[in-house]
Simulated scan of single mutants.
Amino acid sequence: MEVKLIAHTQLSEDFWYELSTKNYGMAWDLTENKITNGQAVALTAIRTCYSHNKPSEILVKEANKYFYRGATDDKGGTDADRLFRHIVNSGHTSTLEHLSFTFAIEGVSRALLAQLTRHRVGFSYSVQSQRYCRFGSGDKSGGFKYVIPPSVEKNDHAYREYELAMIEIQNLYDELRFLGVPPEDARMILPNAATTNLVMTANLRALLDFYSKRRKGRGAQAEIADLAEKLREAVVAVEPWTDAFFEQA
């Protein structure tokens, strides 16, 4: 399994220009003070609900108050961190839907895909097609790839039987194609273990909900629990402030 972050929420160039040219007596700088784009967007969305300022003015007029003052709840960080904690703890997480992340997810089983696509609100999927992609031994794919569950991999006898079954399925797929069966019908014999690739986009609120249900220790199957951890790692790498919210999910 490979998970790569393709894109995530960024401030637009035009908005950056406005921030740099308007003079509101601000002393803040996003990059110098390690304020992420996600934090800037989150603050804008959250404060829009409570502020008389226009959304386009939130950062320039309120950044000093939130990003340059210590948290008033005595739990560490800035007052922006305090605000983010308050929003998550109060359940007003619709404001976090404005942060989105797009991932390349590669080499996961069709069984995982069936579980993953049960998460629909806040998620978008584009999946490799078994109808249009061919998985014969002589095709560009070189045959279908498959996932081996840990319980099978650690059992020598089960592993041998599993491998023989996958070989037999590949041979039968090849035979069906040789007999003129189109790929869209031959694919019917491919197992849940067959791998697929997809592009997935999800907002932060949806990802936190997904993680709370699929993280290790919550009864999730090993493969999707592993995916949950990789998604968390990818998000936290670009938006470190979110780590605490994954941890409490």
Rank of each mutant, 00 (worst) to 15 (best):
S109E: 08
R110P: 03
R110D: 07
L112G: 05
A114N: 12
A114K: 12
Q115S: 10
Q115L: 09
L116G: 03
T117I: 15
T117P: 05
R118N: 04
R118P: 02
H119N: 11
H119S: 05
V121I: 14
G122I: 04
G122A: 03
F123R: 00
F123P: 01
S124Q: 11
S124V: 08
S124L: 04
Y125M: 10
Y125W: 09
Q128G: 08
R131E: 10
R131D: 09
Y132F: 15
Y132R: 08
C133D: 13
C133Q: 11
F135M: 06
F135R: 03
S137D: 13
D139L: 09
S141Y: 06
G142T: 07
G143F: 05
G143S: 08
F144H: 09
K145F: 12
V147R: 12
I148F: 08
I148H: 07
P149A: 01
P149W: 00
V152P: 01
V152T: 12
V152A: 03
V152N: 01
V152Y: 00
K154Y: 07
K154T: 15
D156N: 12
D156W: 08
A158W: 06
Y159C: 11
E161S: 14
E161M: 15
E161N: 14
Y162T: 02
Y162D: 04
E163F: 11
A165V: 13
M166V: 04
M166R: 07
M166Y: 04
E168R: 15
E168W: 07
Q170T: 06
Q170S: 07
N171A: 12
N171H: 14
Y173F: 07
Y173D: 06
D174H: 07
D174A: 06
F178I: 13
F178H: 14
F178V: 14
L179T: 09
L179E: 14
G180V: 08
V181L: 13
P182I: 07
P182R: 08
P183N: 15
P183G: 08
P183L: 07
E184T: 10
E184G: 08
D185A: 14
A186Y: 02
A186N: 06
M188D: 12
I189P: 01
I189V: 07
I189G: 01
I189M: 02
L190Y: 02
L190D: 00
P191A: 01
N192I: 09
A193D: 01
A194D: 00
T195V: 13
T196H: 01
V199L: 13
M200T: 05
T201Q: 10
A202R: 00
A202L: 03
A202W: 01
N203K: 02
L204M: 10
L204C: 07
L204T: 02
L207F: 01
L208R: 00
L208H: 03
F210Q: 00
F210A: 02
Y211L: 05
G217I: 02
R218D: 08
G219S: 06
G219H: 03
G219D: 04
G219R: 03
G219T: 04
G219C: 04
Q221T: 10
Q221R: 13
E223V: 01
E223A: 02
E223I: 02
I224P: 00
I224G: 00
